[in-house]
């Protein structure tokens, strides 16, 4: 089951990466990042099971905490961008583009 779990994890991560690359809605891109983080969590759990210890699961808790912090800060940035541009389309957010 470990190989299958790692396979599912990799496929979900790839779907997240492709979502970040093809979407323009900033909120959906944030959700894709969350999907990538969860896919990595699945890898952690599978390898912890392979190793027979629960230490890998501790890292999953850390990853979840960081994901929650990232969601809070990212969505606050999205809200303040929306106040400025009246849109969350990434085409309008190009201040740093050279």
């Amino acid at each position: 089951m470990i190989a299958e779990a790692l396979f599912f994890s990799a496929v979900l991560f790839i779907i997240g990466v492709v979502g970040v690359l093809i979407r323009r809605n900033a909120i959906i891109i944030f959700m894709c990042v969350e999907l990538m983080l969860t896919a990595v969590n699945l890898s952690f759990i599978a390898l912890a099971r392979l190793h027979g210890s629960a230490t890998g699961q501790v890292f999953v808790l850390f990853v979840m905490t960081v994901a929650a912090a990232e969601a809070a800060v990212g969505l606050a940035i999205v809200i303040s961008i929306f106040r400025h541009h009246k849109s969350v389309d990434l085409r309008n957010i190009n201040l740093l583009k050279g």
Binding site: N41, A48, R49, A68
Partner: peptide, 27 residues
């Protein structure tokens, strides 16, 4: 569900509470 099958029941519960519950509600 996959987490439960991989013997990580506590993390599975936290996954439902934190991800499906809290983070997605914020989104």
């Amino acid at each position: 569900a996959l987490f439960v099958m991989l013997d990580a029941q506590f993390v599975a519960a936290v996954q439902v509470l934190v991800y499906a519950g809290a983070i997605m509600v914020v989104f």
